[in-house]
Design a protein around this nucleic acid. Structure first.
Length: 485
RNA sequence: GCCUCCGUAGCUUAAUGGUUGAGCGCAUCUCUCAUGAGGAUGAGGUUGUGGGUUCGAUUCCCACCGGAGGCACCA
């Protein structure tokens, strides 16, 4: 079995914020879970760099555009490392491997007869040097430049999106293509009520972007180009990763770009004769301390700053537990601190600590051989993970942690004189911790490794999440798993 | 304006046509292996408001109030 998962590629005209971190962490957890199941996983993330806005932002910063996107893309790459992501690749849409494929697919769609020359008409603001929508106008003026736009006609190539309306509708009506269901309903009703118009897929008068293979005056519209990253990164059409991993099993994206991924992207693929992705999972947005993340509110926290302050595992843990799957959710430092101290340090860290100390004192640091009394329902958790309910899966794992703590209290090993009985209790605890370290690995990989190191064992797979697989080993009690904040 | 979704204890949330379950926080009790950790108990809800269907609604229907989201070239 293979599993190909992607995140959206990020816009590089501003540095990363906590929302980017959230999407990447979730995708990473899913990727790691599938690896635990023994599947061959490919996890892709990257940056979207051909937008016109980059050119403008670079101009404002008085740097060359290429240099500007290089700098900002680096910030996202650095973020991936800091988040401890297990991504297999990082695509940049300015890379030659991408521009080549973007042009190739554009040509393919053109050759199919699905791209034709027409005129794009709309309001054009001289200040923005761009078309703006009627909705964006305030009192008939561009709000940014306080100028009345002019009605302009521009030559443009159009993609016959309308041709694919029925096929796309049929696709999105299948019940696993768009998840969660709420997002599927939105797209279905919108498609049914509005229908599809052809899409302008080229722009003139731009210096930045990918030139169309059919007309040198035109650049490829940035969305048409951006979506293609999912196949260009794999080396479409001939390279091995493409053959092995396409179609994608999951495009993990935010709700703002649902339409592009579930309507436009499938239509492009249909036209180009490329197989369709299996699932587009649409997550919600994050608020920070209860407020929308926005520059004007000045609450844009650099996630790298947060990681340096708190370490990555508590952040991964808190952000996943705090945000209900598919919904918007809030991330706050207060909640992070709470969860770090109560759940990570007290429940889990202390469980390991008390277990290892008991083994140290009673069995000279050697895990005794016996039979475990605790079991864990892996099916339930795997089901939650299949359904992308990461928050609930993690809560379920925590129930097991709590069960272990209660087990110690009930059994009172510090009062037990009978050696066999004591062996059984401590084996049960150590073996349960072994299972916990596997289950937690996708969520908090560093912590999982620390547990294994102290138990002096290797990380298992999901198949090993059954009791009694722990062998007699000498433990190596180390530092506490978590520091309290 | 049109279309989704939501409104349950201070906060986050689960569930169901028939006496609303849980976690955090709070209060009390308790163990001592452990990171002043762990465990137990308790207080707290007429399930947004009004109406309807029903023997019975928090769950189904309608209206209203409140909140979130989507509405194509903006990513």
């Amino acid at each position: 079995m293979k599993f190909y998962i992607t995140t959206a590629i990020d816009y590089v005209n501003a540095p990363p914020h906590i929302g980017h971190a959230y999407e990447k962490i979730c995708a990473d957890v899913i990727a790691r879970w599938h690896r635990l199941k023994g599947e061959k996983v490919y996890f892709l993330t990257g940056t979207d760099e051909n937008a016109q806005k980059n050119e403008q932002a670079a101009k404002e910063a008085k740097i060359e555009t290429k240099k500007f996107v290089d700098q900002n893309s680096k910030l996202f790459e650095e973020l991936c490392k800091k988040l401890n992501l297990s991504n297999d690749d990082f695509i940049r849409t300015t890379q030659a491997r991408h521009t080549k494929v973007a042009q190739e697919i554009f040509k393919k769609v053109f050759d199919k007869g699905d791209i034709y020359k027409g005129n794009y008409e709309g309001y054009y603001c001289q200040g923005c040097e761009a078309f703006i929508t009627e909705k964006e106008l305030v009192d008939g003026k561009c709000p940014e430049h306080n100028k009345e736009p002019e009605w302009l006609k521009e030559e443009s190539y159009f993609f016959k999106l309308s041709k694919y309306q029925d096929k796309v509708l049929k696709l999105i009506e299948t019940n696993t293509f768009i998840l969660p269901q709420k997002r599927r309903n939105e797209m279905i009703s919108r498609l049914k009520s509005e229908g599809l118009k052809d899409l302008s897929v080229s722009r003139t008068n731009l210096d930045w972007g990918i030139t169309t293979p059919i007309d040198k005056k035109h650049k490829i519209y940035v969305w048409f180009d951006a979506l293609i990253n999912y196949v260009s990164a794999l080396g479409y059409p001939d390279e091995k990763p493409y053959k092995e991993f396409w179609p994608a099993d999951c495009h993990y994206i935010g709700k703002g770009i649902n339409w592009f991924h579930t309507i436009i992207w499938p239509a492009m693929l249909m036209s180009a004769g490329i197989p369709l992705p299996k699932t587009v999972y649409v997550h919600g947005y994050i608020t920070l301390n209860g407020k929308k993340i926005s520059k004007s509110l000045g609450n844009v926290i650099d996630p790298i700053f947060l990681i340096d302050k708190y370490e990555i595992d508590p952040i991964r843990y808190a952000i996943i537990r705090d945000i209900p799957h598919g919904e918007d959710g809030d991330f706050s430092e207060k909640s992070l601190i709470n969860r770090n101290n109560n759940e990570l340090a007290n429940d889990l860290g202390n469980l390991l600590s008390r277990t290892l100390t008991l083994i140290e004192k009673n069995f000279n640091s050697e895990i005794p051989e016996s039979k475990s009394e605790l079991t864990f329902d892996i099916e339930k958790i795997d089901k939650l993970m299949q359904n992308y309910e990461l928050d609930k899966a993690l809560a379920e794992i925590w129930k097991f942690v709590n069960k272990c703590n209660k087990y110690i209290n009930d059994k009172k090993p510090w009062e037990i004189k009978d050696k066999k009985e004591l062996e059984k209790i401590l084996y049960t605890l150590a073996d349960s911790l072994r299972i916990i370290s596997i289950l937690l690995h996708p969520f908090i990989p560093e912590t999982s490794e620390k547990i294994n190191k102290q138990l002096n064992i290797q990380l298992g797979t999901l198949k090993d999440c059954k009791p009694n697989l722990l062998k007699k080993t000498k433990i190596k009690k180390g530092e506490h798993l978590f520091k309290k904040i």
